[in-house]
Simulated scan of single mutants.
Amino acid sequence: MLEKYNLKMPHVVYSGENSLENIKTIILENKVNKLAVFTDKGIESAGLLDYPMNFVNATGVEVSILDDLPPEPTYSQAQKLVDEFKASKADFIMAVGGGSVMDTAKLASILATDDYGVHELLDEPKLAKKCIKTLMIPTTAGTGAEATPNAIVAVPEKELKIGIVNEEMIADYVILDAIMIKKLPRKIAAATGVDALAHAIECFTGNKANPFSDIFALEALDMILNNIVKACDDAEAMSAKNKMQIASFYAGVAITASGTTAVHALSYPLGGKYHIAHGVSNAILLVPVMRFNEPVCRAKFAEAYDRCVHGEKTCTTVEEKSEFMIKQFEKIVKHLDIPTSLSTFDVPASDLDILVDAGMQVTRLLDNNMRKVTKEDACELYKQIL
């Protein structure tokens, strides 16, 4: 555990019923002249953008909609939207979407006045400084991008995803309104929810874990384990959905204070090379990596059991508690019908060496894993999911 640690969070967070109403106050308080709205065409076609735009339009502010963004964008695709934002001359950013939308909006907030772009930040992420304030409105309960200083982009030439980390990208405002995820398809709710689950348990068991990150990671884990199934299975379970939103945010805060580990490190090639959705990639690797980590994380898993299991506790030893937690992760992934094998995505076994080489490049996250991951270990982990 770190001996020195810090906590950085968005300036203001609104949550609960009708929290979208705060959009009007935010726009007026910041004397916005022109608002850039980052979103994607899927959000628009689902009618989700209408909810926040009703409040935006009530202010009479000029608006520029930036929606030409594919899922899991490359750095050049993110740059295209950044360039459109620069041309718009907007003075405030509102992002309405999932992780890719929010990450691209965050990049725009620190690149608005610079000659360099996203590509340069791959090697020098701290180069840029925030020049435009941001409001994040997530439409999933999973990525936690509304809370983090990270922006994830695909790098095709490396067949990998890379996280650009810069504290300047932390949002100024966040709105967590469950109406934004009420109609979320179960498949997406499941994948993004397990992504949040991975964030929580990875941050709690990482080398950089500390008293600040533990508070948020444990609370997130408790809320996710006890709400994710209901939130995904029942379209009307608004309380569970709101708790998942809050848990996703908490897990994002934990990332900022601690960081993810080998689950995310080894999942990056799955998105970068095979375009497997980020949450699904993490779900595939979650149980294998947790089982690999169990010998050195046993006490942490037991602590998580004591916190997250309510009612009668049947496990008494540290070993029993640890095993129970891993089996719970496994049950959730199975119940939510998330694939657990790369064969579902036609990933050939002959690509094993490519996966290992790419995964081992993500040293920023592998170094945070409590159990050292060697090239041979990565090979064995990938073999389990091929």
Rank of each mutant, 00 (worst) to 15 (best):
M244A: 00
M244I: 01
Q245K: 13
I246H: 07
I246C: 07
F249Q: 04
A251T: 02
A251H: 02
G252M: 05
G252R: 00
A254M: 08
I255C: 12
I255S: 14
G259H: 05
H264N: 03
A265F: 11
A265H: 08
S267G: 14
Y268E: 01
Y274S: 03
H275A: 01
A277I: 09
S281E: 11
A283H: 02
I284K: 06
M290K: 11
N293F: 03
N293H: 07
R298W: 08
A299M: 13
A299W: 15
E303D: 14
A304C: 09
V309I: 15
G311F: 01
G311A: 05
C315T: 07
C315R: 14
E320R: 04
S322V: 10
E323I: 02
M325N: 05
K331A: 12
K334H: 10
P339K: 15
T340W: 07
T340I: 09
L342P: 03
L342W: 02
S343I: 10
V347N: 04
A349T: 14
L352A: 09
D353M: 08
I354C: 12
Q361Y: 14
R364S: 10
R364C: 04
D367F: 04
V373W: 07
V373N: 05
V373G: 05
T374C: 06
K375H: 12
L381N: 07
L381P: 04
K383V: 11
